[in-house]
Nucleic acid binder design. Structure first.
Lengths: 167, 167
DNA sequence: ATGCGTGCAAAGCCTTTGCAGTCTC
DNA sequence: GAGACTGCAAAGGCTTTGCACGCAT
């Protein structure tokens, strides 16, 4: 692949630079290092995951900085913040915000696997509702909870159910 | 109105009774009192709201009992638990689960107002996705975030924005 | 040089848990 | 009477905050 198309990370870095400049915020090395880590991942990670990853990457930052930077990145659209109410009430999970179309999530209530999907009808609903309710819709969060068909997950769940029945 | 149609509360009480019996749980007065409070409200309340309301109702229960009972009520479908990721990460908000069709929420990012709406297309998406992804979808959570058009909210937001610009 | 950003640890908030006493079954 | 449920307070997990130091501007 030629370099004529800038990588996602490069685009993100430029966008962050622009945002910091516009807001009069400082371009600290921590902010760019964290951005890099975020854009090297393809999963839905929480703040602690990111904190640990930065330490393994031998760019140790404090948790405070992780939280602070994530807020900046969310604010400029480079990171998306999700509140999945499945396993853990309190924990937020993040994902990169560039280079992916709007999507929704499917979460297995047993193994907590997260699957992404897109459906154009969601956009239609958004438009209709905004219009009907006189509401400026800016973003959405659609999550379906259910049971996935992964072999190991199903097996484990069946075993657990059998256990529960014996009570 | 005649009593031939049992009230929502009565229906809920019966359902709870049935559930407790089936599960071999005890029919404590706290559980029924909390159910009554829940079904007297039409809003999206959190655990603390409920705790306070019970004390004003002079049926004082502990927070532990509030949380315990809410879990029971969620489990038997008499209460719905929402994780709105707007104002506060950690707080769950609850609403009664009977006598209302499946719906989604619209949340104002400024005043945190919660509006409910229904759209049949959501059901279609659910069906399609479940089929495509081989996933047994059990429940959903759809939230749109945006700005509502309430007069006071708009005024307050404009004032806040003006303040921010002067920085 | 100014003062924002970072790191550390402590505090905060919502929620869960442990233990003793109480009430349902 | 047995043990599940409640109340209280303490602990727990994630996140935010206060303060001192360091770095970008």
């Amino acid at each position: 692949m030629l370099d004529s198309t800038p990588s996602l990370l490069t685009t993100a870095r430029n966008k962050l630079e622009e945002y910091l400049l516009k807001k009069g915020l400082r371009r600290s090395s921590e902010r760019f290092a964290i951005l890099e880590e975020v854009y090297s991942r393809d999963d839905h990670f929480d703040a602690e995951d990111l904190y640990q990853a930065m330490h393994q990457r031998s760019f140790a930052v404090s948790r405070a900085t992780v939280y602070n930077t994530l807020e900046v990145l969310v604010d400029c659209g480079l990171v998306r913040k999700n509140q999945f109410g499945d396993e853990d009430n309190t924990k937020s999970r993040f994902e990169k915000g560039l280079g992916r179309q709007q999507h929704a999530h499917l979460i297995c209530v047993n193994c907590h696997r997260v699957i992404e999907f897109c459906d154009p009808r969601l956009q239609l609903i958004k438009t209709t509702v905004g219009h009907t309710m006189q509401f400026q819709v800016e973003s959405h969060s659609l999550v379906f909870y259910g049971e996935c068909n992964d072999e190991m997950c199903v097996a484990r769940t069946k075993a657990a159910a059998a256990n529960a029945n014996s009570n």
